[in-house]
Amino acid sequence: MSKINIIEMYKYRFLLKELVTRDLKIKYRRSFLGYLWSLMNPLLMMWILTLVFSYVFRFDIPNYPLYLIIGQTIFGFFSESTSMAMMSVIENAALLKKVYVPKYIFPISRVLSSFVTMIFSLMAIFIVMKATGVPFKITLLALPLSLFFVLLFSVGVGMFIAAITVYLRDMMHLYSVVLTAWSFLTPIFYPISIVPQNIRWILQYNPLYYFIDYFRQIVLYDTLPSLHTTVFCFELSIAAVIIGGIVFKKLQKNYLLYI
């Protein structure tokens, strides 16, 4: 079965490409700055949050702007891509009703188009690195690995949430609340050290914490994460894809009757 899927995926590679370009086109249609927003947005957000958190709360974090923009970019990608994936099957009802298309292509394409936007946002991170005098070292070559983990993880969660939402539209409203809670449970703007010991275990169950930390270790602390950490992150992201894939496949048979 998996063999068939790979052949099928290959056949539909043009569609995947077409869907990703469509998403990107629609996203910045009629805005003057277009793709520049993928760069400006994280910078502006970082600027505001840095202002807020340097006056209101004070965290003892070296190079706070960089710390912040990394967490923000990774979490922003996860939250945007899964929210878009959530609606993907429902929104493509018109196409699904007329012609056979493998349905998993829709959540995957949404996550991918969001990933492309995030690649633009990486430029913002590099700008902040440059501005704060962080050296560009060879360890940066490990960066794609951390992006790959988040990508896989988002694909998994995206498929899961898309499948559920077809049957239970309430997810649309619930998920934004879940994301807000999740963002506070992820050390994006605060250091792990301020989390009280008795609730710190929650972080252990938050995959995004590991991915963000992985990224920060490379860029901010200039270290290569250990092999053990790498394998663990890989396992987490693969597990997400497998679970999301199974749930999606189990539920997809009756999608047409609900969209």
Binding site: Y12, F14, L15, K17, E18, L19, R22, L95
Partner: peptide
């Protein structure tokens, strides 16, 4: 183009 891609072109 979208319809063509659906058919694998």
């Amino acid at each position: 183009f979208l319809n063509g891609a659906v058919l694998g072109y």
